[in-house]
Nucleic acid binder design. Structure first.
Lengths: 226, 226, 226, 226
DNA sequence: TGGTAACCGAGACGGTACGTCATGTCTTATT
DNA sequence: AATAAGACATGACGTACCGTCTCGGTTACCA
């Protein structure tokens, strides 16, 4: 309605967009970030190079768009307890990072972004921030269940809650990424359980009463203990 | 006697090695990973391109060697408590990641390594494993101070201890890297204290009696609590 | 209709072709064959190296095209007698071989061609065969003047005529090239007269009556006689 | 006596010289001039590159020495008539030029020599001048047989004789080289006979009586006639 | 018989050019 | 005006040889 800015000339092909992003993902799988070229993506998509450059300013931005959709697959099923919810999302996130198109692309675009503000912003809005809602939602549910205390009232309380969300997000995502890509060891259910135990105990003992989950004995607690 | 592997021909110049790695670091600072070229490094080092390729199979491996030495600067000063030790190393690690040569290089080589086994191995042996001793040493000290329980006896106990070290390492390093490079927010002393609190509480409440450090009230606990 | 071989895409720049061949000749003059590099030619022509390689498979083929045009300058002025015509073309050919761009290039590409069939063919069609018409034309004129007997009739006669043309061509071109480039002595009018005398006597005495030209006393016959 | 310049130190290995020149020839056969490298020759000869450079200033000079010896194989057997002698040497020279090591090397070093005075001199003294004696000797024999008139007396006569030798040498060598390498057609006995006929008639008709050889009917005279 | 000086192999070195590849822009003609 | 095709300027790539330079070690002559 309001965007009648483009009226004249041939409109852009929506099919081309889809074909290009599909081609980008398949090229990532086969060639990795380093082997991916604009010309090759164009050829796979049956499209001219010009068409790519008309839509994205750089390879990095195109890849961010191509990969972002994969992160939307992550969901937070309500499994009845915070422990179960966290373990589930840890494993789902690890599985996502195991896929060749994400594994190779994520670190590469982050590396590019260290020198490119626009790209960094695009990554944050397109990928990072959209996943943070998983933490927000999980926390809300846990509070509803009584597993976590409610947010303190007032603007200071909200800020503290935000800081807590950010910390938990960086710890979970960071640990999984580091384990998976830097340490290069696989994220097993055992490891996920240990990480979850560490996290929940860390959260619970500082604030208020012991949550319910702390009472459930974890069978292999020793592996996660220090 | 047994180490006379290289006997014949002109020996490689140690000065060239130094000049190349220095040039690599300064080129990283000025140009970043993406702008760094072998020819430019060679020129800065006053060396021929062939001399680079004679020593390293790729730009990635050269950069790993160039930045690895920076990671060796990390130390674990004995500040008297586990909490202080952890906070100190978190801040030191974050400061290291803020340096332009590490910031731009680390994610890039990790990205490359997702498709290159040799490079992944090189990163692990040259950078990752050598920093893990910080965790080992910190844990040993904390056990000596009575802040953490001693290792369980027997081979199973040792294995559990190894798993614990790995987990803590991935959590600390991962959280810092993710905060710094992916979330692209600075690691402040406040954030470091919150992370440390989360970690120490997580470790303490699973095993045995409450350690001494847990009793110390952290002034801004709310920022790290959930 | 049938010649629409190239329809799509940006057409090749004719200006680039000209600039490249001009640059090749001037580089040959200044640097010689050995000093000529593709990159330098590209720079002189204000063109990218890839543009050269898009047109020619090798330096040799490019140089053949660049010097071929110079050979087209050779003409056969009708000076009224076979002797004068031959002397004229011998001197013109020698002058051409004295030019630095031909002198340095011709032997070099011939040397390359000893191992490269495609190049040999290119030289033959682009340079050698196109000059043979000088012999054919000179012979035709001499026959018209009665200086040489007409071709024998029938296909055998034509074949014999072809063989004669080839032989004369190889003798003239070969002697001039050898004198100029191998013996490295200059082709003077005296030498040209001696060669012409040798050739004309050789041709005349085998067939029929003494032609008119043989009767003209050459002033410095001694220099060419044996 | 006079060559006591080198007294002390280890003398150069004569075996190395032989091995290097042999290796040069075999490398020429396999790789041609363009593919021949100093490193490869050194390896084939079981010798260090330094040893090559201690003996020759350049690849060209080394190759000249390596192929020069092949030209010494040419001989002038006394077949009883000038015609037979010339035909024989034409065919022998052509056979020599058919050998891969000479074919590719001769034109290449001549090409190099167009810009290198020292090399040109080396070629002249090592290859060209040493073959000219074939013409001198053939002429002397023909004079002894009465097939050619004796040299005119006095210094002018000697100079004229020299010029004649040079001309004949350039004609024979040039025609064979041009036919073989530029026109790229094989030198057959028929062609050799035609060239010889042309040459002998050219020489005979200018000076004195018809030589004996002119009386022998050549079976395929037509091929050489014009 | 022990120096000494030039030789030798190996191979690293600073260079230069190679021919290829990808980038991002531009010209065509077509839709 | 968007498209497919493909030529274009640019610039890095990794390789190959060049001719020079260290190395450790080997002869042959001479004192």
């Amino acid at each position: 309605m309001a965007d009648s800015a483009r009226r004249t000339g041939r409109p852009r092909s929506a099919a081309a967009d889809r074909a290009i992003l599909d081609a980008t993902r398949s090229a990532l799988v086969e060639l990795g970030w380093g082997g991916l070229t604009m010309g090759d993506v164009a050829m796979r998509a049956g499209v001219a190079k010009t068409t790519l450059y008309r839509r994205w300013a750089s390879k990095s931005e195109m890849v961010v768009d191509a990969v972002a959709v994969l992160f939307d697959e992550l969901e937070l099923p309500d499994l009845g307890s915070l422990r179960a919810d966290v373990e589930s999302v840890v494993l789902a996130f690890a599985a996502l990072l195991e896929r060749p198109e994400t594994k190779t692309a994520l670190m590469a675009v982050v590396a590019e972004a260290t020198r490119d503000d626009a790209l960094r912003t695009r990554i944050r809005t397109t990928i990072v921030e959209r996943q943070k809602h998983l933490v927000v939602e999980g926390r809300r549910r846990a509070q509803a269940r009584g597993e976590l205390p409610p947010d303190p009232p007032g603007p200071e309380g909200a800020a503290a809650a935000d800081r807590a969300v950010d910390l938990v997000f960086d710890v979970i995502a960071g640990a999984v990424v580091h384990r998976s890509l830097v340490s290069a060891e696989s994220v097993t259910p055992v490891w996920a359980r240990a990480l979850t135990a560490l996290l929940l105990h860390g959260l619970s003992s500082t604030t208020g009463p012991a949550p319910k989950t702390a009472a459930e004995p974890a069978p292999d607690d020793r592996s996660g203990g220090a």
